[in-house]
């Protein structure tokens, strides 16, 4: 039981992610979480504004069910299958964040500096979450997939477009962390 309560190593998590992808293909579907964002737009009536959202969202109910399961899985893992553990982050990483003024690094999944209600109620904090979320939503649809659709499913099927998208993911991430973070948090 202790093995389950402790954080899981990469060599357990990675192959399990591949099995999740494989299972969905076995069910006749494709692993792609970002498609749900489009489905939500359609449910909200976006089909009247743009043809892109004019599709039968009920065909995506299976994927919305995966989302519901993911929320439940997050709850189970966090509240039932974990003991309070500090994350085993690289001390260099922790030091770099403390220079940006981050405290209690790695003591929770998300930094209070961005996700606590105090942070959310500040203009800077709210802007970070809204801009970050907007870029994820816009970028993933423009690129036709996200980490699950491109990095795992696409690369597993040796698709060149997915490789280009993943290179883009890293290009964007490196620009954000190395060029923009010093401006945002410095």
């Amino acid at each position: 039981m202790d093995y389950i309560l402790q954080p899981w190593p990469w060599y357990v998590a990675g192959p399990m992610m591949a099995l999740i992808m494989f299972t969905l293909i076995y069910f006749g579907k494709t692993f792609g979480m970002s498609s749900n964002l489009r489905t939500f737009c359609t449910i909200a009536g976006a089909g009247k504004k743009a043809k892109f959202f004019d599709f039968d969202w009920k065909a995506q109910r299976w994927n919305l069910t995966v989302v519901l399961g993911a929320v439940i899985g997050g709850f189970i893992a966090h509240f039932l299958l974990s003991v309070p553990t500090d994350m085993d982050l690289n001390p260099v990483t922790v030091e770099s964040l403390s220079q940006y003024g981050f405290e209690n690094v790695g003591k929770s999944l998300l930094p209070a500096e961005l996700y606590s209600w105090d942070a959310v109620l500040s203009l800077k904090g709210l802007s970070i979450l809204i801009i970050g979320g907007f870029l994820v939503g816009f970028g993933t649809r423009y690129a036709g997939g996200c980490t699950s659709g491109h990095a795992i499913t696409g690369l597993s099927n040796l698709q060149v477009p997915s490789l280009i998208a993943v290179i883009g993911f890293f290009l964007g991430g490196l620009i954000m962390i190395h060029l923009l973070f010093p401006l945002i948090f410095g």
Binding site: A77, G132, G139, A143, G168, L171, I175
Partner: peptide, 29 residues
């Protein structure tokens, strides 16, 4: 679309720390 869309996604991923699967999972936590 792949390089530009991917880069925009990466910017948002690094800033918010969440991609389209984890953002739902985190609600559960």
């Amino acid at each position: 679309r792949y390089i530009v869309g991917g880069t925009l996604f990466g910017l948002g991923w690094a800033l918010s720390g969440a991609c389209p699967g984890p953002m739902y999972i985190l609600v559960g936590t």
